[in-house]
Design a protein around this nucleic acid. Structure first.
Lengths: 358, 358
DNA sequence: CAGCCGAACGTTAGCGCTAACGTTCTGTCG
DNA sequence: CGACAGAACGTTAGCGCTAACGTTCGGCTG
């Protein structure tokens, strides 16, 4: 068994018969080396299995070609986002390391940012629901890009267009003929949740549909809250014919409650979610939802970070990417419903629509 | 804006009025410092917000108190495993960084292991289905622990007891009265898949039930394969009353096929999965399955790695942890089924079970 | 041909830290 | 009281690498 397995640059240089610095220049593709020697050195380094020591590189202030990511692994679509980011990073000859944020984090976040700073050239933060990382990052001398889950930040960030997505969801339901549409909100501390709520109200108004506070139930993005919210909605005298849930997880919670009440989705109630989590296309019913552009978000965030690392001191840029309505099984035109109920609903809708008529 | 944000050890030492080495000793809790001075130094370091530079520590050959994990993020229960490992590591004052293995990895794995070696004190590898990481790790001078998804390895490893789990699954079905039980296999290149298949055959034999090759359909752990396998099974003249799928994902694939054929689970066919992926308790029907002891696996693997790092050169240990049968909605006693069908099945079973008795 | 320039190298210092070895000082014992 | 042990420090070297600055030398200009 050898003493040290991977050769150092000095060893490569020695074998190649050049100085340390020449080898460094050759390997880092810097000028100042003749083409033949460069080729020689690269070949020898390859033969010897040379791998640059990133710890040493970082120590000198050079690039390590590693990006760090801080993320909560347990949120639904984080893994897809990470896979996308990893692919983009690798394409740019960068490696990616992920720090898994614990669910309840009570340790000083600055030490984590600092740890990543010692290793990586830049950091992407997928913001958790609650976070005091922002202030730590502000003082860290390292490029940071945030993936918004909805907290405003002073950093360059990438986010999905939650407002537009919410509008699409609601317009879809309205186009299907629904008039009495409920909303199950997310955690309003997040701008993403607020944007989706705003979209709900705005589109209702635009469509001249009445706004009924009883149809707007507070949730927190979790399955259980969707379940309970739907129960409240079902208990209404005049229950909705469609529900827009602020995310897929709570949408499925709502669906469970609807079914438990002996009703069907979309037969009795149409449901639209938000996110397009992977299982949304596999569960029964397949969920109509708003797809977050994860691949584009991954690409945009990595590219933005690499630009910052490269020194292009971009003014703190906010990239907003379009979402997409994915129509699946959980929504259906109102007309497909039972005649009697339809009649009732239409009557009710007309009540709200115009306070003059009837 | 300050030039450098986090102070170096030298700066802390200067403020404390001691030498660099004394500060180092104090902070690393080494002997050779008087109690008062130690306290002084620690207080000052804390006030100054000192964070040790792990890159520099690693360069000198010291511990960084970081463990690396190589994992495929897109497999179902990886995130739970990672969360568990992170918690255990943090409890031991270690941080954890995850390298997300791309789905199709064509870059030399040794450079990734080497990268982690430069940063971390040890590595846990959650083996992907196919992997040539093993040979690279063998030559890396760094403690490695593998979480088996079923490839034999020469490393200390932690794995769930797949054979025992498979036995429990099958015994459960037999206890429910099922006699005609099908198996949808996993990728047999993995020992986990082979162990589960072996359990299927062994328990059948133990129960003196006939082995019918037509009931053993090849799959690959994916949803689609479960779907197609179930279709084959349903096409049989004498279709099974229960299915044991090698994992939850393919079990849900099978359920989808069963439903598409107009049959119900568990009304017509009972289904058992393996893994207990998080959604198994949320999907409809909630899946009866074999739970992998993820928390225990996380704990065991991290503790094993820390022991190796601490220099306890444990002989390459294989830890096998017990699985647990979780009974939910997807299985039901055979008696609950339609009388007519039951009679038919029992007749068939008796033919196979004993060519003598009855 | 002196002078100079720039490409192609080599040398030096230092990133932040720790191991290994000095140095100082106090106490202790024959 | 000298020798010596050992605790409490300080100093030096070096981990692997790169920035910054030397050095060499061929070639070009006037």
């Amino acid at each position: 068994m050898m003493k040290r397995h991977y050769p150092t640059l000095a060893e490569v240089a020695k074998v190649a018969g050049v100085s340390l610095m020449t080898a460094s220049r050759a390997i880092n593709n810097r000028p100042g080396v003749s083409p033949e020697k460069r080729e020689d050195i690269l070949r020898i380094a390859d033969e010897m299995g040379y791998v640059a020591n990133r710890a040493a590189q970082k120590l000198t202030g050079a690039r390590t070609r590693i990006i760090g990511v801080v993320a909560e692994l347990h949120t639904p679509f984080t893994s897809d986002l990470l896979l996308g980011m990893g692919a983009v990073a690798r394409a740019a000859d960068y490696e990616m390391l992920v720090y898994s944020l614990p669910v309840c984090d009570r340790r000083p976040p600055h030490s984590i940012i600092e740890m990543l700073r010692q290793i990586a050239d830049g950091v992407i933060v997928i913001l958790p629901y609650e976070s005091d990382y922002l202030e730590s990052m502000a003082t860290a001398h390292i490029p940071v890009v945030t993936i918004e889950q909805g907290i405003e930040s002073a950093f360059p960030s990438v986010t999905a267009d939650n407002y537009q997505g919410g509008c699409s969801a609601l317009r879809h339901l309205i186009e299907l003929g629904h008039r009495r549409i409920a909303f199950i909100s997310g955690n309003d501390r997040l701008t993403s949740a607020r944007d989706r709520r705003r979209a709900y109200r705005d589109v209702l108004a635009q469509a001249r549909l009445p706004y009924d506070p009883a149809l707007e139930v507070d949730g927190d993005f979790l399955r259980k809250s969707g379940f309970e919210a739907a129960q409240k909605l079902l208990a209404l005298d005049d229950r909705p014919t469609a529900i827009f849930a602020a995310n897929d997880t709570s949408a499925y919670g709502a669906i469970a409650a609807i079914r438990e009440a002996g009703l069907s989705v979309p037969g009795d109630i149409s449901v639209v979610g938000f996110d397009d989590i992977p299982i949304a296309s596999q569960l029964h019913p397949q969920l109509t939802t708003i797809r977050q552009p994860l691949q584009q978000m991954a690409r945009a965030s990595v590219n933005l970070l690499l630009a910052l690392i490269a020194g292009l001191d971009a003014p703190s840029e906010q990239i907003v990417l379009p979402t997409q309505l994915i129509v699946r099984e959980s929504t259906t035109p109102l007309k497909a419903k039972r005649k009697k109920e339809e009649a009732v609903k239409m009557g009710v809708a007309s009540v709200g629509t115009a306070n003059l008529a009837r």
